[in-house]
Amino acid sequence: MFNSIGLPVIVLGGLAIFFGIVLAYASKKFAVEVDPKVTEIREVLPGANCGGCGYAGCDALAEAVASGNAPITQCPVGGSEIAARIAAIMGVEASNAERQVARVICCGDKDNALEKYEYQGIKDCKAAEMLAGGSKSCRYGCTGLGTCVRECPFDAIHIVNGIAVVDEEKCTACKKCIAVCPKGIIELVPISKKVRVLCRNQEKGKATMQACKVGCIACQKCVKACKFDAIKVENNVAKIDYSKCVNCMMCAEVCPTKTIYANFADRKKAFIDDDKCIGCTICTKNCNFEAIEGELKGKHKVLDDKCVGCAQCSAKCPKDAIEMK
């Protein structure tokens, strides 16, 4: 009885206890200080050491993430939940201040863009694209058959009057729609940038005009109206450089075809707090629209009818006396 049960228990138990003690001792004796981030990330990871991330186990991945060599989304097993927890550890969200959203660069809906033919095939943009670039007379425009709608895992794109429109609240910038769009007319932009050129037609003005009422005809009016050098016409279509754009919406105001979209209700006005203003005139010098007046050492005033809400004055004011409302 003892030999068949007791002995194996004692021998295996003894071995286990022996290794347990050795490991416990070794972990103290050979302890190495590591970046606490590595340990924290390692604890969040599933710990299956499956190697699915391309690294040699969870420890290796934790190290790579902590040192910035791997993206926080690298663990395919953990998915978005683990990624979010790693992001919290790495503080990535905090540094990623500007949220991006997808936008569809086309405004040629059913009322504005003409149809070349009646498409009756499979309801899929890629299929339609093979028939002479889709039924729309503009071959750069949104086909409107909703391939991106079906691809979007967040229900953030819908077809409205024949073109895809992104719901910016729901969009997570996962880029799936961008990958699937056969026209390549979806792009990611910072959510704070309110002005958009909604056309990618690269044909000359006259050809564009024949295809769509709201296409960019490359008239250059927006380029002249922009005081910040943020808009250029390339390949017969206007393009905004969002690193320079300040949401003044002047381009949208002058656009004759209304291709450049901006919601004028969102336009802000500068407002100077009289108690804080010291009359330094810095705001006056920085205003490109001559919308601020006031003498040196005197209180300054914003001319509401000229102010376009570009926020350049409030950014430069040394006393933080200017608010955008």
């Binding site: 194996p8 021998v11 295996l12 071995l15 286990a16 290794f19 347990g20 050795v22 490991l23 070794a26 972990s27 004796k29 050979f30 302890a31 190495v32």
Partner: peptide, 23 residues
């Protein structure tokens, strides 16, 4: 008990070697 004993030994051994090398 070969299999289970070997698993135990190998797992313990590798852990130990890892710690020693790390230090």
């Amino acid at each position: 008990l070969q299999t289970i004993a070997f698993i135990l030994v190998i797992a313990g051994l590798v852990q130990f070697v890892e710690m020693v090398i790390k230090k």
